[in-house]
Simulated scan of single mutants.
Amino acid sequence: MASLNFNDQDGVLRSIRDAPPTHYTLKIESLSMLTKNSLEKYESGEFEAGGYKWKLVFYPNGNKSKNVKDHISLYLVMAGANTSQIHCGVHAVFRLFLLDQNTSNYLVFQEQKERRFHAMKLDWGFDQFLSLKDFFEASNGFLMDDTCVFGAEVFVSKERSTGKGECLSMVKDAVMYKHVWKIDSFSKINTDCHDSKTFSSGDQKWKIQLYPKGKGIGTGSHLSLYLALADPTSLPRDTKIYTEFTLRILEQTHQRHQHGKGKYLSNFCQTVCSRNSSFVFYRVTSFWFSASDPERGWQKFITLGFVSQTTMGFLLKDTCIVEAEVTVHGISNAL
């Protein structure tokens, strides 16, 4: 290793030592097969240091995404971090190793200052860890019998809470999805809440919830209707989904649901009449759905007396038709 000539890189300390890396060793046999099999990088398994999980990422021909040429690249990556750990910056000092198999000594790379690993920067390391010329030079002992050995030490110095953050992604040209739910044997529903089959809109699963005898202040006097996330537990705690939706009960006698002829009133129920006296009851609103707030609707959607009137056509041969139009306009995730 005495013949190595390094380009000056500010803040990088290089040393030679005989003690092996404390936390992890990565031995790669048949290195040439990585290139032959078009593997631009190799990610090690996870290892623990300082109460956190880490892994090494090795680019045998350089990290092309960083325009690295004629060098190998090596990085330390924070792995398996939970939400609270990602929110907080984990500060660590780390060293990356390369074994000289001729002398059993290690070439050690270390940055002079600690690095902060967080949600938007989970990896730190060296784009130009070592030139390919020096790496392949037999006298240096880094690559022998197509085998090389890397290593890592990670020392977590402290954690600093930097406060919470979020990223809002609005959907350009959001697509509305319509779901029609036909409910047979309406009068025989014997549960407080009756759920539709799940359907998808905006990469989320949804369902309609109908309370045939009402809910809350609507109990006994109104039919209650809600839109709900089908599996709210699958959402990360701080994820919110901004959604506009319409819920309708359709008139079936004339099968004409021309709500477009009327004027929508947000958060309010409206009756729309056509020349054939057909009706549509609907409500429109928008809401931020989340795991802690997975449903939105109306306890007093429509009176039970109005639904049961045969002349209205909302209940025909004990069948009711409910329709939902759902448009996801944006998603907010924690940083």
Rank of each mutant, 00 (worst) to 15 (best):
V12G: 14
G62S: 01
A152N: 06
F94V: 05
V68R: 01
S73C: 01
K158Q: 09
K164I: 15
L31H: 06
D231K: 12
H222W: 13
G202F: 02
G330R: 00
L31V: 12
E295R: 07
L229P: 06
L31S: 08
A138I: 13
S30Q: 13
H87M: 06
D10V: 00
D146E: 08
A334K: 05
D293P: 02
A79F: 07
R116L: 09
S157V: 10
C167L: 15
P21K: 09
Y59I: 02
L210N: 15
R283Y: 07
E40K: 11
L107E: 07
L265C: 08
D8P: 09
M1F: 07
K53Q: 11
E48W: 10
I208Q: 14
I217H: 09
F150W: 06
A228Y: 14
Q252M: 05
F289W: 06
V108Y: 11
T327K: 04
Y59N: 07
L107P: 03
T246I: 12
W298Y: 15
V57I: 04
Q128Y: 01
W54G: 00
V175I: 00
A334L: 00
D318T: 08
N190K: 15
M33I: 15
Q101K: 00
H259E: 15
S32L: 14
Q110Y: 08
E43N: 10
P294D: 03
E153C: 09
L4P: 06
T191W: 15
K113L: 12
W181G: 00
N105C: 03
L96E: 13
C148H: 08
E29G: 12
K27E: 12
S65Y: 04
E166P: 01
V90M: 11
D100H: 00
T219G: 01
L34E: 05
T246C: 12
I302L: 11
F186Q: 01
H179C: 00
I302T: 09
T327Q: 03
C88F: 09
C148E: 06
I241N: 02
K53I: 01
I16A: 08
K55A: 03
T162Q: 15
W124V: 12
H257C: 01
F47M: 14
G141W: 01
C167H: 14
G313N: 01
Q258M: 13
L316A: 05
F314S: 13
Q110S: 15
V307Y: 05
S65E: 08
